[in-house]
Design a protein around this nucleic acid. Structure first.
Lengths: 221, 221
DNA sequence: CGGGGCTTTGATTGTAGTCAAGAAATGTGG
DNA sequence: CCACATTTCTTGACTACAATCAAAGCCCCG
């Protein structure tokens, strides 16, 4: 994917990479830092969908729409590569395996959205928080960005609330509750996680994603 | 898509087409009737993600997973075509435009999930219900399956509740509330919708999806 | 016409939201 | 490096939306 990108840009924490409603001209590759994708409703309420970490493709859902559906905001200072849409067309024609891996990754993201939706719709506030922390921790761990159990947390409690369908006040109380039960310890900007304890609170089944699907055509010679 | 399918099967209302956890061997094309996709949590709670209508591809998110992530259940009697995974591989290699339209449709479904997540996370019960009815109505209308304003409703109130992150009792009360405000009238198994009134309650921006993206490579000669 | 699932309604509870104010942390400019 | 401004966090008191519990009625469907 990286080879397909053209421009590289840096963003400061809090700045917008793209606003919802803007014309869709690129997808993006996040190379450093964290980016949040969110939507703002007519009421002014905001819903976050994902905390993107390095290696993630950003902005792909909006490919299906004339106007961007999601706002992309830098959660930390970050570095982003731009992939213009014109380049996307040739991928599917000339590199079917890359096209298929884009398709697979879109479906993986659908699963992530389904898991978050099930969590927001059907799980108590404290368990939502536990699930969120574990999900973010596990993704960062696999990406080699953190050591196990220590999760840097640059998000505000309001941002966490907008991810989980809660209020900032209630997130604060639930964080306190987790600390009371020794499931979490806050050390500066880091969250120290009690991994077994938090994992036990995650009501979503753990997922095994396919790496090389059997049905994927062989690489070109 | 239809040409890629092999087997065709019929299912009775309530029967399962595929259970979550089962090995992933097919995707499906719904040709008649409605199918719900859902997930069951460790707590036993259920979350619905989508009411699929004729023309929809079913089961694609699970392509990214070793075990199926979603349960597919017939909401009405329905007819389904099976697309084996083996066939999927050749699509991307031999029909790049079809591959790309699969990719686009996966991203369209991501937007639908994002809209539902924002609704469940950030919208009041009565507005959730209004949004759900309008979304289903609009999709069926575009598909030419209904006449405007008249929505057949074979789902139980418990199924609607599991879609919206509510209880069946509360869905019942909110339906009553909508009727009180002349936003809804129930006539047998049909819901008669006050379209302008319900649309005004939908807090999600309306979407314009791309048909022929400019970046899509030209059809093969 | 009998029975099980679904709907409806009432009474009560509880989780999370709202409002508010003070404390702490963070950022900024001098 | 300090002083000030602003944002974020924390806590308390109170409210309210939706959940829960329970029971009766309805309606298919066999």
């Amino acid at each position: 994917m990286s080879a397909l990108a053209s421009d590289t840009l840096e963003y400061r924490r809090r700045s917008a990479i793209r606003h919802e409603g803007a014309p869709v001209q690129h997808i993006y590759l996040l190379t450093e830092g964290w980016v949040g994708s969110s939507m703002t409703l007519k009421s002014g309420a905001r819903q976050f969908f994902k905390v993107h970490i390095p290696g993630d493709v950003l902005g792909a859902p909006s490919l299906a729409s004339v106007n961007a559906v999601e706002t992309l905001t830098a959660i930390t200072d970050c570095t982003i590569k731009y992939i213009p849409l014109s380049r996307l067309g040739s991928i599917f024609a000339e590199h079917p395996r890359v096209g298929m891996s884009l398709f697979l990754s879109a479906n993986k993201e659908r699963i992530a959205l389904m898991d978050l939706l099930a969590t927001v719709g059907r799980v108590s506030a404290i368990e939502r928080l536990a699930s969120f922390l574990m999900d973010l921790h596990d993704r960062l761990l696999v990406a080699g960005q953190i050591e196990a159990g220590r999760l840097p947390m640059p998000m505000t409690q309001e941002e966490i609330a907008d991810m989980l369908g809660l209020t900032a006040v209630h997130v604060n109380r639930m964080l306190h509750e987790l600390e009371t039960h020794s499931l979490l310890h806050r050390s500066g900007r880091d969250f120290i996680l009690n991994l077994p304890g938090l994992q036990a609170m995650n009501l979503i089944a753990s997922r095994t994603y396919v790496q090389e699907p059997s049905w994927l055509p062989p690489p070109r010679g």
